[in-house]
Amino acid sequence: MSVSEQLRFAYRYPFSSAARSIVAASGLSLGHVSEELVGQARSWLLRKPGEKKPVLSDSAFSRKLEEEVLSFPVAKAIVSQTNASVLMDGFALSVAYWCSESVQKEDPSGLLDLAQELGLKPDLLKAKPILVCILVPDFVQAAAGVSSLKLVNQRVENGNVFLGRSEMEAVLIELIRSRVRSSLPVKIGPVPSLIAQAANEVVNEHKKRRKATALEGIQGTIVPSLFPDCMKELYSRLQEGRNVPHLGRFSVATFLLSIGMKSADVVALFAKTPNFNEKLTRYHVDRLAEGPKGKVSAPSCAKLKEYGLACTDCRFKHPISKYVHNLKNGGENPADH
């Protein structure tokens, strides 16, 4: 790869080893970053998903290179400093979106270069509609959790997954997201004031942007008849003293705690189960309510599906969203309960 090609690759993929080499060669130090660079880094963090890359003329390329490639590690430092996993998730997603435009423009050998950069070793087949094949463990490790890339819906034989162009692109974009996310938070020594200040600004800006979630309005409103069907089933099983498997217990407990049920009430709900042990139940429920990482979130519908607990006809992505929807549209006034 020539220097110019390396620069262009780094611009397209700022997480890459090519980009890291450029940053290292520039002698960038977080203690001495310019306000301009911090400003550019902040724009990484406030970029909206789907925002398009500017088309660069050759003359603008070098300048943009500095703004984009060098600002990327600064952006990582800022988002790490926020200590907010939701912002780190958003940043990783935003970078993946940003790169997806370039991924879609790559020719097959460019896709292979990128795959290699991301630790994947596909074999190029060029037999339309199949482009590449990847070993099953590499595929599931890369694409797990992306609903459009479920292994069960792929062509699988003899230890290989056969992918068309668009599927391969989707795998790479997901790998970019997970590569960036797993690199966060970055550990930095003493935090330069510009970085700390930028982190505060980013947090405040996100707070402003964030609409008041519906959840805030429903805390403590427990209306079992309006629970989504999956939770209604688990809840009624517990009330009837029927056995509920471990993952079902976990799911319903985190759901109830998330909508504001008190820990003691959750423990009481489990009292009728055949193997009830109050001390043990209280310990687990308390940990779900106030563990070392705060309250444990209720599993999403995708997770519930993994557990075999989801309702088949539910169009929601999270049982809490469905509950909020039911509360608002279910014909019952929460205030009555």
Partner: peptide
Amino acid sequence: LSPKARVELVDYLSGSGLE
């Protein structure tokens, strides 16, 4: 393999999520 990747294998074996 990550937990999610293990779920993918189980889904494949059980046909869960097949479209």
